[in-house]
Design a protein around this nucleic acid. Structure first.
Length: 554
RNA sequence: GCACCUGUAGCUCAGUUUGGAUAGAGCACUUGCCUCCUAAGCAAGGGGUCAGAGGUUCAAGUCCUCUCAGGUGCACCA
């Protein structure tokens, strides 16, 4: 429909079609028209008042069977489309089988990156929600996407829980979810450290032993890492996440040094007096150590190597790191160094920097016990959902379990995705997770309602013949027609919140329609069934892009 | 101190990328709607110096400058 308007305009207006496309907007109220073209830009070109231009154009442009009316309202040229044919085209287009987009290129999405000393928390849930959603949006638009994870499974923070376990664990085996079991020792380390500051040195010694590959130390490390990873995997599988490949820091941290030699050869890196290797990145980024005096590599060195390794593994066209904004500086430095090293992939790296999840009392702190644990949160929300279900109907235990998990995950994911990723999210345990209004369950509910209509109608193959259209039907058709644009926008901005906002607006309009326009046994049943079907398909796709599953009944 | 990010209704957020018609939702609050396809819903109502000040422009929540407030980073931790 837009194309028709563009073609019409391009005959009378000295602008490229692309420019016209950019300018066309949707008026704030449908009384004004369906599409509009603001004439301000032409005012300079023609040296005339934009209102005059609009009214002249409104006389020149000819209406057709698709464009019924063209009216100038002030400086805007407003188009009224033939709503019946627009409705037919839109619905047909949606109900048609979707051709798969051609593969555009290979994109790696790295997310999660857990430490193997404690269970996942709410921050990880945001990370995974964004990572999964971005991956799906990319894939939907034709990218060949691979999801990768990295376990930060070595280092001073890992030996903390090991040390506490050695001292106080008495070789016990996990008596609860194993990542929580290990996490308790991590917390215990912090507590004991206050009483006994000497532990910090003990911890350093333990790390040294690990680096020297002391057998006993490696055995504890392996055992505890296995426990944590098992627990973490359980959580992210429950959350609906899968990775194509998982990397382990412990397996690469020694090899990371290879990259240092390359930099020295190229004259980029320099040896300091004490034998540490450094790079000077000028005033803005400063001096960075890349290899310690004791010849061990640091975090950034491993990331440098890992980027190279991933390029070897996948020959990606793009690598997107989903990492919190506390690491903005780190990624600036990382990309800068890889650029200086002149690696071919270095220009295709991108940091999707998302904001922290904070609590009303501030940042989550493990020391103060204010960490919102992922497993606990999911369980709590699921229990709330169970109560809601039980209020409504009697179901088997199995069915309650099934539905409550999907609904609670929808509530959590949607809560984390509806806010622009770059912004901080305030999580208020009392208020944040609810099931009404702009929430995941509201969207699932609209889907279930649509499904219920289709199930209950006796007409199984409704014909698409439109007699006349109500205001709500027009609104719904228009919103449905904007799905493609919404996805494209989410793709180019890598922003799931755009999809979330679209989904909510769509569901809202559907619910208005639901109340205003009865489907079953109405004169318009055939057409309305088509409309409901189209809605069902689009809302399902939108929710899929957010990583949210639909329910046929709720 | 330096760098980056944020500031829109009581609360949580859209809208700022690319300036354009009357600044929108949700929650909370007040009312109405289940003999009607699922009330996790719908309808109506009150609630705004778009942090502040200047500037650019025919036009600024949106662009520029400064100020104020909050957050994050500035590790040979990962």
């Amino acid at each position: 429909m837009k194309e028709i308007i563009i073609n019409l305009l391009s005959k009378e207006v000295k602008l490229e079609k692309k420019e016209i496309l950019k300018l066309i907007e949707i008026p704030p109220s449908s009384d004004l028209g369906d599409y509009s073209f603001p004439c301000f830009i032409l005012a300079k070109q023609l040296k005339k008042n934009p209102s005059e231009i609009a009214s002249e154009l409104s006389k020149k442009l000819k209406t057709s069977k698709d464009i019924e009316k063209i009216i100038a309202t002030g400086p805007y040229l407003n188009f009224f489309i033939n709503k019946k044919s627009f409705g037919e085209i839109t619905i047909k287009e949606i109900l048609k089988e979707r051709k798969k987009e051609k593969k555009k290129g290979k994109t790696l999405v790295e997310f999660l990156g857990p430490n193997t000393n404690k269970p996942l928390h709410l921050g990880h849930l945001r990370n995974m929600s964004i990572g999964e959603s971005v991956s799906r949006i990319l894939e939907f638009s034709g990218d060949n996407v691979k999801k990768v994870n990295l376990y930060n499974d070595r280092g001073i923070h890992i030996t903390k829980s090991m040390l506490a376990y050695k001292k106080f664990g008495k070789s016990k085996k996990p008596n609860k979810k194993p990542d929580h079991f290990v996490g308790d020792f991590y917390i215990l380390y912090g507590k004991e450290l206050e009483k006994n500051p000497e532990m910090e040195n003990e911890n350093k010694d333990l790390l040294k032993k690990w680096e020297e590959e002391d057998k006993e130390t490696l055995a504890i490390w392996k055992k505890m890492n296995k426990w944590v990873i098992k627990g973490i995997k359980e959580t992210y599988k429950k959350f609906g996440i899968k990775f194509d490949k998982e990397y382990y820091e412990s397996k690469i941290y020694k090899k990371a040094k290879e990259i240092i030699q390359d930099g020295i050869k190229k004259g980029l890196f320099k040896k300091r007096k004490d034998n540490a290797v450094i790079i000077n990145l000028g005033k803005e980024l400063g001096e960075k150590v890349l290899l310690r005096a004791d010849n061990t590599s640091v975090y950034i060195t491993q990331d440098m190597y890992l980027a190279k390794l991933r390029y070897q593994d996948y020959k990606f066209d793009r690598l997107i790191y989903i990492v919190g904004n506390e690491q903005d500086y780190h990624f600036k430095v990382l990309f800068k160094i890889l650029n200086l090293l002149n690696y071919p992939f270095s220009k295709h790296l991108q940091h999707l920097s998302y904001g922290m999840v904070t609590l009303p009392e501030g940042k989550m702190k493990s020391r103060e016990g204010t960490i919102v644990d992922a497993d606990n949160l999911i369980e709590k929300v699921q229990n709330l959902v169970k109560k809601e279900i039980e209020k409504r109907e009697k179901l088997s235990k199995k069915e309650i379990e099934f539905r409550s998990l999907k609904i609670s995950l929808a509530a959590i994911k949607y809560f984390l995705l509806k806010v622009d990723y770059s912004k901080e999210i305030l999580f208020n345990p009392e208020e944040s997770i609810n099931f009404e209004g702009n929430t995941g369950p509201y969207l699932q509910y609209s889907y279930a309602r649509a499904n219920s209509i289709l199930k209950k109608s006796k007409i199984k193959k409704p014909a698409l013949n439109i007699i006349n259209l109500t205001e709500q039907e027009n609104k719904l058709i228009k919103k449905l027609s904007q799905f493609q644009e919404a996805v494209e926008s989410a793709y180019s901005h890598l922003n799931p919140s755009l999809t979330a906002n679209y989904s909510f607006e769509l569901a809202q309009i559907f619910n208005e329609f639901y109340h205003a326009c009865p489907v079953i046994n109405s004169e318009q049943e055939n057409f309305r069934l088509n409309l409901v079907q189209a809605f069902k398909k689009i809302i399902k796709q939108s929710l899929y892009l957010l990583g949210i599953d639909v329910l046929e009944e709720m």
